[in-house]
Structures are given as C-alpha cells and as structure tokens.
C-alpha cells in the first residue's frame, strides 16, 4: 500500500449514510451489495478531498455525468446531504485513515437548510459555499460552483455507469496522451485488452465537424471511430485516460459497475489490465459490481497478478443500525466463491 492510500474510511451525513465506517481497505477494492444500498454513493463519498473546492467540483461533475439535473441551478451539496435531521444543523463529514498517520477530517455543515460552510481549516474561500434564502428557495451566491464541470480543470477519477462517447475524450486524449510518446505507448498497449488488433490511435479533425478519435487496427485499411467499438472499449478508454492524465489530484480511482459493457470472456483480462495499471501508477481502486462473474474474475485476476494480499471485497448491507460495510480478504471471498456462497 502506498502512503496516500486509504486503510480505513468513515463518512456520515452523506446521502443515506448516517454513519458508515469501512475498515481494512486494500489497494484493489470491489464493492458489492443490494440495489440502493449505497454502492455508488460510497464511490461519490470517496471523491472527498482535503481541498473542499476540488470535492465540490468532483460532485458537480458526477451530477453532470449521471444527468441528475438538467442544469446546475440546484445546490450541489444539498443533493448529497443526508436527509437526517433536516430541521437542525447537519454535518456531512469524511474521515480518512492512512497507514501510520493520524486521521484526516473533512466536513461540511448545513445550518437549517440556509447556509453551508466548510469545516476544513485550510479552506479560506468559504463564501463560495454560502447560500441565501429567497422566498423559501435556496440559491447559491453567484460565486458558487455552478459551472459545467472541470471548474478547476482537475482530473476527476470517477468512471460512471453508462457514459458513452463524448468529445471530452478526444480533448483529454489530445492534451494528455497524444503528445507523450511514453504514455501513448503504454496507453495503446493497455487498450489492446479489448481491441486486440489495435495499432494506433489517431485524432482526426477532418472526419467530422469536430475532431474524433480513430482506431487503426492491424490488417484493416480503414480507420474506425472509437465510438464504434462499444461500451467496454469506451469504458477502458475512460479508465486509461483517468490513470494517465496529468493534473492528478486523487490517488484513487472510482469505477461504477466495473463489468458493464464487458463480455464475460474478457472480464478477467480486463480486470488484470486494470490491476496492472493501478499498480504501476500507484492508484487505489474502488469499483462496484452486481455480477458474480465479475467477482470471480476479480479473484482470478488478483491471483494471476500475485496481488491477493491487496484485494478486498467490501459488501454493503442494510441493517437495523443503518448501512454497514463488511470487508473480506482474498482467502475469505475465495472460500465463499468455492462454496458457492452468495457474496454479492
């Protein structure tokens, strides 16, 4: 484990988490659990950052991805606050534990639905988060983060479910990968897990009114647009961009529905490549799944790469005490898989 990787994590007042603590986190973590138990919410919570502005930008970006709002007139933080105790001040907090270091705390407090402030000592631009009451409606000050993402132009390491081809991929690829020979070579190599015949990736401005990514394959004369290679290829392209991009603020990578769009026969290879890339780039991986095949492939890939010691399955479950997290090490989930025990 790298020094900046989480060993434990606690979140409270965030969406449906009154208080959730996850212990014994590994470098490669697969999050499982029933529908609506909070798997995606946990990925969102893991976007917390000691600079609250980055965190806000990330949440803002996530909402754009999932199209929860058509425009960002709604308060960003308001959506993520839990509904617990809405009539009194509510605190949304995050606590990060790192190996051999004291816990790092980050929190936001919501005062009676009128005002947000940040608890973070290092943040001085708290006016950014203030809102006023206007005829019972909550509005942000003009300075609030309402832009269409990339407000700070940081790399948001969040790969959402069902996000298709957009020109943002071309822009990022051109900016971070195309011009760097070493990065491009590693990028192309990694993408071959889903496009085995891949020879080169080109940015072509003459193909349509805006530049597009074109794939050159061995033995094929015509270049094909990346968008034609399906969800799996787009997903790994996004993952690779996130790992290889500059402006890395986070040391972790969050992927929602890891196996979506990937054929089961390619899952182990896909996850093996992902583990290798995460290892080589010192990334801590958090991904969700509903699929037993994905869990099995995760176990196979960990074994294949000799990374069993750092693999975890984190199961979220609804209990009378709220949502709880149960961390399983490799031996435990391998045993459960062998016994055909349900661990999703």
């Amino acid at each position: 484990m790298e020094r900046n990787h989480l060993t434990a994590f606690e979140v409270g007042g965030f969406k449906k988490f009154a208080r959730l603590k996850i212990e014994d986190i590994g470098q490669y973590n697969l999050i499982v659990g029933d529908n609506n138990v909070g798997k995606t919410s946990l990925l969102e919570a893991l976007m917390c950052h000691e600079n609250p502005h980055y965190f806000l930008d990330a949440l803002d970006d996530i909402m754009l991805y999932v199209k929860r709002f058509n425009n960002l007139r709604e308060p960003v933080l308001s959506y993520f606050f839990s509904t617990f105790g809405t009539t009194s001040p509510v605190r949304m907090y995050f606590r990060e534990f790192f190996s051999g270091e004291p816990a790092k705390d980050l929190g936001f407090t919501k005062y009676s639905g009128y005002r947000f402030s940040t608890d973070n000592r290092s943040a001085d631009n708290s006016s950014l988060h203030e809102i006023d009451s206007d005829n019972g409606q909550i509005k942000f000050h003009k300075k609030e983060v309402t832009g269409a993402g990339y407000f700070f132009n940081i790399n948001i390491p969040y790969i959402p479910f069902g996000n298709y081809y957009t020109h943002e991929l071309t822009e990022k690829y051109s900016e971070y990968i195309q011009v760097r020979v070493d990065k491009k070579s590693a990028f192309v190599h990694a993408l071959r897990v889903l496009i085995p015949g891949l020879e080169n990736i080109e940015v072509n401005a003459g193909f349509s009114s805006t530049p597009v990514l074109l794939i050159a394959e061995e033995g094929k004369n015509n270049l094909q647009p990346l968008g034609m290679y399906g969800d799996g290829a787009l997903k790994i392209f996004r993952i690779l961009l996130s790992i290889f991009s500059d402006k890395q603020i986070y040391s972790r990578l969050m992927i929602d529905e890891l196996d979506a769009g990937v054929h089961h026969s390619r899952l182990t290879g896909f996850i093996s490549a992902l583990l290798t890339m995460s290892k080589d780039n010192q990334k801590q991986l958090f991904a969700t799944t509903h699929s037993k095949e994905c869990i099995q492939s995760f176990a196979h890939a960990l074994k294949e790469k000799g990374l069993e010691a750092e693999g975890r399955i984190i199961r979220l479950a609804d209990t009378p005490d709220g949502i709880m997290a149960y961390t399983m090490r490799y031996t435990e989930f391998e045993n459960a898989l062998n016994a055909d025990s349900e661990i999703r």
Binding site: R315, Y326, T327, M328, R329, T331, E332, N335, A336, N338, A339, D340, S341, E342, I343
Partner: peptide, 18 residues
C-alpha cells in the same frame, strides 16, 4: 449460507463477513 468447510465461519481467527 454454504461455508465450504466446517470452519468456514471464520477467517484469520475472526468471524467472516457473512
């Protein structure tokens, strides 16, 4: 919940997640 073996309720001396 199948355990796989009689001792499948524990791992590294601790109770399993299940």
């Amino acid at each position: 919940v199948p355990l796989g073996s009689w001792s499948g309720y524990k791992t590294e001396g601790k109770p399993t997640a299940a």
